[in-house]
Design a protein around this nucleic acid. Structure first.
Lengths: 71, 71
DNA sequence: AAATAAGGTGTAATATATTATACCTTATTT
DNA sequence: AAATAAGGTATAATATATTACACCTTATTT
């Protein structure tokens, strides 16, 4: 798997979990202090997200970070 | 858990897995094209490692990325 | 004891993640 | 149909991850 594909899968998982929680991009961004544009790029797998950002997202979505890596 | 503590735990897991594989910092760095100084900072939890770097390390250590997040 | 290897630090340069903001497009709501 | 909300894009500024390299310290080996 290429790193690009990998980032797309992680982003897809984040997106699914956000929707499962009934949150908009803006709401999730506010909840964990992540800029909306950044969040959208992460969900699309366009950027190389950092560990801290993954942790903030996991906390806001009330899941463990490993959930983002399950595929 | 603070993000700083979190990075230390991830780094500690990477360090353990590297030693388990009998690799030096330099060797692991060469194997996955990560600068030795960067790798040492990651293992110490001093920097906010990115997803791609975690993937490269996991491939080189022949584990899944989730192994780094188990604590 | 000297030589070597390993871990680790420091610094400058580069790449890029993240912020902040404005705007656009497309659903959804009224 | 108009208004609103949501997703998405574009750009500039800032912060920082990563590289590249030199050097230091401490084990380990010879």
């Amino acid at each position: 798997m290429t790193s690009a594909q990998y980032l797309v899968l992680i982003g897809s998982n984040i997106s699914k979990l956000r929707k499962k929680n009934g949150l908009t991009s803006k709401e999730l961004g506010l909840r964990c202090d992540i800029e909306k544009s950044n969040l959208i790029n992460i969900e699309k797998g366009r950027i190389n997200v950092t560990a801290n950002t993954l942790l903030k997202l996991a906390n806001a979505l009330e899941v463990e970070v490993v959930e983002f890596f399950k595929f």
